[in-house]
Design a protein around this nucleic acid. Structure first.
Length: 349
DNA sequence: AAGTCGGGGGA
DNA sequence: TCCCCAGACTT
């Protein structure tokens, strides 16, 4: 109880003023929670503002095209969140009469809503006493109670979920959940937390045992694979371009890209152009092949390092379904391709 | 239980 | 460089 009171007191004095707080409307709360999954507040905030501007209600979101939703999501990453968000909006708008499921248990059934997000919405919107467990809560609890279980193991999640539920202030679940997460984000930070100024420093077990810098324990490390992407910008006689939607599983599902030549290893510039010159596109061969950068762009994802190069392939006639740049720029692209288009290429061509 | 999915920022 | 971020879903 002292833990809870201190956290809430700290929170009321130190909380950030964020647009999804000070409301119990589940729509903006849900929207913010999906956007903030594995995403910092500073990164998600502008997206939240543009979404609530474009889609003031869940009906507006439900009636939008997926392409428009993905375009607004462009650059935020983890695009399955946007696809699930849109699918869930349609379900709530058209099957549930626009009303969000009324409890943690029912919220959990929504696409894209897991244990954390269901608890967040249920507590913030309905004041239901269910504890949230996110990266912040793992860190705060592991330190305050000096728990060195490996948080990458599923059974540890169960252990912490139980602990979080025990310390939850059942009379103020909304404020408590906000408080413990905000405390983790601002005070009990991953590296070099300022324990001298911490309101919990007299009762923090990790601090007493000098274990703060070692907690939480997390073993799992994702290994990174290298991929080599050669994007072929097909430009036809009308100065129109070919783009295609990425289908199936893998990164960037349902986003657009240029025709892609992916290789298992890095080709020299000469070998790449050699290989491209042997390819046919709509029964035509390019009249000219240009490389558009001197340097290969290294785009780092958490689990893949993408080595990206752009070529321009000029054609002497029209290509089917080619589009002008003004049409292309309205489509959702991976941010690395979008950045290339706006900064390096289409501005000067 | 392990793998996949993005992008950015802080130390 | 490495690690983490208001995690969820698939295999």
């Amino acid at each position: 109880m002292e833990f809870s009171n201190s956290l809430i007191h700290w929170y009321l004095q130190n909380k950030r003023d964020l647009p999804w707080r000070n409301t119990t409307n589940p729509y903006p709360i849900w929207l913010s929670e999906i956007m903030l999954q594995q995403t910092r507040v500073a990164q998600g905030l502008p997206y939240f503002l543009s979404f609530t501007d474009a889609f003031p209600t869940i009906f507006d979101l439900a009636n939008a095209d997926e392409e428009q939703v993905l375009k607004l999501w462009q650059g935020l990453g983890y695009y399955s969140r946007a696809r699930n968000l849109h699918a869930t909006a349609k379900q709530i708008a058209f099957e549930l009469n626009g009303e969000f499921p009324p409890s943690y248990k029912e919220l959990l059934k929504l696409k894209g809503v897991g244990e954390y997000t269901a608890a967040a919405i249920a507590s913030f919107s309905y004041n239901e006493p269910v504890a949230v467990l996110d990266g912040n809560v793992f860190r705060v609890l592991s330190r305050y109670f000096n728990v060195d279980s490996d948080i990458s193991l599923p059974k540890t999640k169960t252990e912490f979920q139980q602990l979080a539920q025990e310390v939850l202030d059942k009379k103020n679940p909304a404020v408590f959940n906000q408080a413990i997460m905000e405390f983790g984000a601002l005070q009990c930070v991953p590296k070099n937390p300022d324990c001298n100024s911490c309101v919990l420093n007299s009762s923090c077990a990790a601090l007493q045992h000098k274990k703060v810098s070692e907690l939480p324990v997390k073993s799992k490390k994702t290994k990174v694979t290298n991929r080599y992407l050669n994007y072929l910008i097909l430009k036809d006689s009308d100065s129109n371009y070919i783009v295609q939607k990425r289908e199936g599983k893998g990164i960037w599902e349902n986003l657009y890209e240029f025709p892609l030549l992916e290789t298992d290893f890095l080709l020299s510039e000469k070998d790449a152009i050699d290989q491209i010159s042997k390819m046919q596109f709509y029964n035509q061969k390019p009249s000219e092949i240009l490389i558009l950068q001197n340097e290969i762009t290294l785009h780092k994802l958490s689990h893949q390092h993408l080595h990206i190069r752009f070529f321009e392939l000029r054609f002497a006639s029209k290509l089917p379904d080619s589009k002008p740049f003004t049409a292309i720029e309205k489509l959702p692209f991976p941010i690395v391709i979008h950045n290339f288009m706006v900064s390096n290429y289409f501005n000067s061509h």
